[in-house]
Design a binder for these strands. Structure first.
Lengths: 260, 260
DNA sequence: TATTGTGAATCTGTTCACAGCA
DNA sequence: TGCTGTGAACAGATTCACAATA
């Protein structure tokens, strides 16, 4: 998907003439492309806003207030405004944000106005699920290759792609301009594949294998770990049931601390 | 898996006699079951430590220093020590931590010394992958049910389980003591299933559907979202390539801000 | 007038650096 | 002596509350 470049509603584009006053105003604005340094926490929420905005655009909404957008994204409005302020001043006081314009600005900030070629390594259950995942292909990402070490699955057709042998890893990355690799291999193979992937020049990895990968400085790794998520839920679940049954169970063999 | 309850090495258990001095010491300890309030960031890392420790236990290590354990978990040692200090004083100065003992303490804190029944709703590609995921079943979690709305898949056998119809949701939750539900449905169905699940008394949900669920206060939701992770990677990837090609692309149609 | 954008206050998490202890 | 446990300093993120303004 390619995103068009709408202008800010009510602001002149480059083609329009700017009066000295307008120019001063523009230049003074504490924003626009914004110097390096959008907080990580903000970056992690931009996709959420983008998704909410896309829903609104589909339903034909032209503008949205920070209050409404925040509600749709499941955050509070102060946080939303602060987050968006890191990108620039794209709202209009008294009105809200132009939906299309904000979609474009967030997409651009996230790098979704270009296409990213993604390779998925490991075509087990999870790899297949990922390959078939629709939301994947839309919005700037394109699965460019499926790779596996098992000769049994090499040659299979999944989601319109031919599964290739892991030996082709470096060639595929180079030839198809793969810049993001998704690791869906068994834990035991993940580090070794990561090493090859990094050596081939990839600096962005999404890791589904339950291992801590070690990679050089400058390589970004994001990790998705089902069992960690479950354990976090179990922790909170335990607290809830503790509370109902009257306090936590006695700690091991130790007496409760007493206030002296 | 059931975890035995080892005693702290070098500390007497309940059976042992405590001298007045030892008793004072124990009671004064600013720790043990620890009053409510382990930081969320710490909780999120405990599973990581646990995994590293399990690896060490398998390799026969008896004790480990904060330095080594931290390295294995991919964090720095000060953070590790601070995290563990929230659980209690389970290390020995000059020595390190007893591996088995620490496994037990973290397991107990996370609620993994009991078994949690998990239901997976939505048996598409992802649901199947989850049902077959090994790390799931071990360590305190048991897949107690697979549910789907599609009559086509109801009755299938996956990972040794019979896929049941979503109509059975409430009955299954009640009868099998399900306390954690994994949502792997299409986005459009997720909220509706979440509502039923919550009404049936479940307060812990792991959501794979790309929607913001709205649930009452007190219900814990964790979200795993592939496309968000990719977008975050794309953001950083873009920065990296910007840097190499000499600064970011011009922002939209606006002139660069000028220092007046 | 309604709503943004943002300083200031607060809260949460990380890192430092070393006292305390086995 | 070596390593944990933790105050204190720091850094980052959230929330408040209101001035700026379309």
């Amino acid at each position: 998907m390619t995103v068009a470049s709408p202008r800010h509603p009510s602001r002149p584009g480059r083609a329009g003439r700017l009066s000295p006053l307008e120019l001063r105003h523009v230049i003074r604005r504490p924003s626009q492309p914004r110097e390096r340094g959008i907080p990580e926490a903000t970056v992690a929420r931009l996709p959420l806003y983008l998704r909410a905005l896309n829903g609104m655009a589909e339903r034909g909404l032209a503008t949205v207030s920070s209050e409404d957008l925040a509600a749709a994204a499941g955050v509070n409005s102060a946080k939303l405004r602060k987050d968006l302020s890191h990108l620039g001043s794209y709202g209009t006081r008294g009105v809200g944000y132009d939906v299309e314009y904000l979609i474009y600005q967030i997409s651009r900030e996230l790098g979704l106005t270009q296409d990213w070629a993604v390779a998925i390594v490991g075509v087990g259950n999870l790899g297949r699920a990922l390959a078939n995942y629709g939301g994947f292909v839309s919005r700037g990402f394109r699965v460019a290759a499926l790779l596996d070490a098992d000769p049994e699955v090499v040659g299979d057709h999944i989601a319109g792609l031919n599964v290739e042998h892991i030996d082709e890893l470096e060639a595929v990355i180079g030839q198809r301009g793969v810049s993001i690799v998704v690791l869906a291999t068994p834990a035991a193979a993940a580090q070794q594949v990561a090493d090859r992937v990094v050596a081939a020049g990839v600096t962005s990895i999404l890791n589904f294998a339950p291992v801590v990968l070690s990679v050089p400085e400058g390589v970004d790794i994001r990790k998705v770990d089902l069992s960690i998520e479950l354990q976090i839920l179990a922790f909170h679940e335990q607290r809830k049931t503790d509370r109902m049954t009257g306090g936590p169970a006695m700690a091991d063999e130790w007496p409760e601390a007493v206030d002296l």
